[in-house]
Design a protein around this nucleic acid. Structure first.
Lengths: 297, 297
DNA sequence: AATTGTAAGCGCTTACAATT
DNA sequence: AATTGTAAGCGCTTACAATT
């Protein structure tokens, strides 16, 4: 191991002939310093290439930053459960870093719970927000309210187009739609129609599904402009089977792109109907999808 | 922000009726404590669920951990250059975390430089090693020497099979070979032979290339047992064009898998020879590969 | 009132002193 | 000699005192 020796606040103070209190004041623009000493100290700071010691700072601050983590209820679907487990892992790691992460859940099945919990969060005045915005309008509105309160926001897992949060962590939905289209066109030489299927009550309000569809279609238009496709939004309950049957009968579908993690529904229907000549692609390694793949679809 | 209040060393001391010095001694098994107080203190530590404050510890230790980062010379190839840039980024971030990263380069083109630099590193007695082991035997031997000196090792970018370092960060080469095979079989319906091509002076000593090949072949054997393939190791200099020509003339090749980042060589040869009916797959987003893709291969 | 300095504290480690 | 306690220090922040 090696001795530390980076210039610190004390070195600056000494060289500038002031106290460390004054150095701290100019370093953080706390005011109550004369213009003259600000100059003097800043110059030395630059000269030394001073970098604050984050460890010492968070230790001295002696407070946790309250970060709110807002995600869909993990009980609603296996994919959210995986996210939840990751979140737990993250939370336990963060305590050591001076972060206090508070976990909030909303129902991905109805936007009202999102709005309600959003209000509660804003009232608690957190220092930052990390969230998965599955609702386009409500997500955007919540984001804007955070901005007004100057609470920094990080988006996560799905992003809202045209918004520039502090950062976005997750897959580029648009590009993933393009990849899906590429894989299907590589595989499917039967040249039937492509079907783009959604499962969502409110498709127009689901940013990631829309982006996936856009990406898929953009690839098709660019690379296979003569291939036809159709877009349908299926019933989230049991009714989807009949709808699917209708589509398959009416159109010559050779490939299906499912924008959600529910591809297994389509797959098992096709399997039941002994109709495996259709190529299928979807999202997420959930146990239901894995089971379908293992059954050899 | 929220007040911190986790049980600390002081709380333990108070509850156990000892001094913080004694608490520290039992916490770290430093000896010089009676069996009785060890029991007493340990009990309280458990009760409180004490977690040490890492920030305070690294601040108090007041030393950098010396970590050696050992990677191929970035001037030798664009892929290593990308790695190097990432390494620089990592190094600048690490200073804040109490790490002092020393960067060492070796030539990926000859193992002697790896061995020489490895010895130098061992003599300097670092606290830890992070490395890219492109040479199988030399990498393993260096790893074992580190173990003997009880220096923890992290592998990175390419791993050595049968070794369990502290952790490995990077792609699973074997699985990436399988994916390559899957993509090729999806695309290539001409049912010619597959050619597996390497560029390496010493293939048998290059762990990642071997793993990629193994993965590729395992997928073929499982999913397309009747399709034929051949494996060749091409000359790293200019001679490879003639070798390639020979292979293409002799065998009915419809797909080529290149195990290195040099697929662009094969691609531009095929383009020059107006032979684009062969499907090609390779590794790494280097500018030469990107150029080939943009030229529409 | 405006500017500057001082001392204590954050939760640890470590050298050394003090006690048995 | 074996065991325990004490005080200073790591690099910051912050409340308050002291100086102009």
């Amino acid at each position: 191991m090696k001795k530390m020796k980076n210039p610190g606040i004390k070195d600056i103070a000494q060289l500038a002939n002031v106290s460390i209190g004054t150095v701290d004041r100019v370093l953080h623009n706390r005011g109550r310093v004369s213009q003259h000493t600000i100059q003097k100290v800043s110059k030395i700071v630059k000269q030394l290439g001073y970098k604050p010691n984050i460890l010492a700072r968070t230790l001295a601050i002696n407070k946790f930053f309250r970060i709110v983590l807002l995600i869909p209820d993990w009980k609603e679907n296996e994919y959210w459960e995986q996210v939840f487990k990751g979140a737990q892992n993250f939370i336990s790691k963060s305590k050591q870093q001076g972060l206090d992460i508070e976990l909030y859940f909303y129902s991905a099945e109805g936007k009202s719970s999102f709005e309600k919990i959003g209000q509660k969060i804003l009232q608690s005045q957190p220092d930052g927000v990390i969230m998965i915005p599955v609702f386009l309008n409500e997500g955007r509105s919540f984001y804007e309210q955070c901005c007004n309160l100057s609470i920094p926001v990080i988006m996560f897992d799905t992003n809202i187009p045209e918004i520039k949060p502090l950062s976005y962590i997750g897959i580029d939905s648009y590009q993933s739609g393009r990849v899906a289209a590429e894989l299907l066109t590589m595989t499917d030489h039967k040249m039937g129609k492509f079907a783009i299927l959604h499962f969502s009550e409110e498709l127009a309000n689901a940013p990631h599904l829309l982006e996936r569809e856009k990406g898929f279609i953009s690839f098709l238009k660019e690379e296979c402009p003569d291939r036809e496709y159709l877009v349908r939004c299926l019933d989230n309950q049991n009714h989807y089977k009949e709808e699917l049957k209708g589509i398959l009968e009416k159109d010559n579908i050779s490939s299906i792109f499912v924008s959600t993690s529910k591809a297994y529904r389509i797959g098992s229907y096709l399997q039941d109907e002994k109709n495996p000549s259709v190529t299928l692609i979807g999202y997420d390694l959930t146990s239901q999808n894995i089971r379908l793949l293992k059954r050899g679809y």
